[in-house]
Amino acid sequence: MNTTQNPVPFEAHRDRRNTMIDRSVASRRGVLLSLGALGLGALGLALTSCSSTTGVNAGATGSPTASGSPDASASVAPSGSASATPTAAPSGSASASPSATPSSGSTQAPGNPVPTPRPWDGPQTGLVGEGKYVAWTVDDGANPDVVRAYAEFARRTGTRLTFFINGQYPSFEQHRELLLPLVKSGQLQIANHTYSHAALTKLSDEQIVRELTRNDEEIQRLFGVSSKPYFRPPYGYYDARVLAAAASCGFTRPVLWYGSLADSSNIPSQEVLRFAKEYVDAQRIIIGHLNYPGVISVMDEIKGLMDRKGLTTVTIRDYYG
């Protein structure tokens, strides 16, 4: 099988997102939908990652979920059923693990501020329950300078981050030595965003499995850990079939978002900061991107915003186990 079928080039991500910004529409609140055992378990406003964006003030809010095409505006997912329940999945086997037996990590990682894992009840757009936590998640990996800047920022400030990476990018191998100590300590979670950023609703079940497992194999090779059971569907596009195929290979916990830094295109630093001020808040999953340098000069300001609001950064694994 051609494992790179239907790849979406990085330039196409940018072009599609810019097109969708021009189609800015009124903001929409997510609704609680039943998707069988994998029902959407949180309400939320969200920004679509990496390309299409529905919008307010050219920034856009809407729920990132199922769509038949990468060109469609994001909307809430259709109800349906999945064949597997969201439970922890076993780690896969490593292909040339760099230093350790692959593992899925632990909620007891040093520095984890969450004393007890919270219950997982379906695709998450936020952090369930009450609290003063925030999950800063970062996707893709096209720009090695941004990857390095996030790693250096995390090491310097102690900020806990979740990277949803595409293994096709060389940025992670290039900066592996900088990233690896953060991964080993649990401060940085490496999660699965597919190998080539393909729209999963457009792939066969076999291709969905291959996109996720190939990416997990690359993560294991680089960092000695498995990304299971967490994954983020590119563009936020999924449906019951996608969830069932992902669950069949151990990816039972799809992670969405509630607010974006909007830096999947090359916007100025002050625009990135403006979106952070709009969306960073307690119990939210915020999405950024490892693609353009606009975020680099405002990382400390974003962290300062979180500190002023009394928020504690957590990885997705910190919070949900």
Rank of each mutant, 00 (worst) to 15 (best):
residue 174 Q to C: 00
residue 21 I to G: 04
residue 275 F to Q: 15
residue 23 R to K: 14
residue 144 P to N: 07
residue 160 R to P: 06
residue 257 W to P: 00
residue 315 T to S: 02
residue 205 D to L: 03
residue 304 G to A: 15
residue 184 K to I: 11
residue 74 A to K: 08
residue 164 F to E: 05
residue 158 G to F: 03
residue 321 G to K: 00
residue 230 Y to F: 15
residue 207 Q to H: 12
residue 42 A to K: 02
residue 261 L to M: 13
residue 140 D to C: 06
residue 80 G to I: 11
residue 220 Q to G: 13
residue 260 S to E: 03
residue 304 G to M: 09
residue 136 W to Y: 04
residue 116 T to W: 00
residue 11 E to P: 03
residue 77 A to G: 14
residue 266 N to C: 09
residue 32 L to Q: 01
residue 34 S to R: 14
residue 138 V to P: 00
residue 226 S to Y: 08
residue 100 A to W: 08
residue 218 E to T: 09
residue 164 F to W: 08
residue 279 Y to S: 10
residue 213 T to D: 14
residue 36 G to A: 10
residue 126 G to N: 12
residue 71 D to A: 12
residue 284 R to G: 05
residue 275 F to G: 09
residue 162 T to Q: 09
residue 253 R to T: 06
residue 69 S to W: 09
residue 255 V to F: 02
residue 320 Y to I: 00
residue 172 F to N: 07
residue 53 T to S: 13
residue 83 S to F: 10
residue 218 E to F: 07
residue 250 G to V: 06
residue 302 I to G: 03
residue 63 S to V: 11
residue 272 V to Y: 09
residue 37 A to D: 15
residue 132 K to Q: 14
residue 8 V to S: 08
residue 298 V to C: 06
residue 194 T to Y: 11
residue 236 G to V: 05
residue 162 T to C: 03
residue 41 G to Q: 15
residue 30 G to E: 02
residue 72 A to Y: 06
residue 190 I to G: 02
residue 193 H to S: 13
residue 234 P to G: 09
residue 70 P to H: 01
residue 178 L to F: 02
residue 68 G to Y: 12
residue 118 R to W: 04
residue 298 V to I: 06
residue 257 W to E: 07
residue 231 F to A: 04
residue 275 F to V: 04
residue 23 R to D: 06
residue 10 F to P: 01
residue 226 S to C: 14
residue 246 A to P: 03
residue 135 A to P: 00
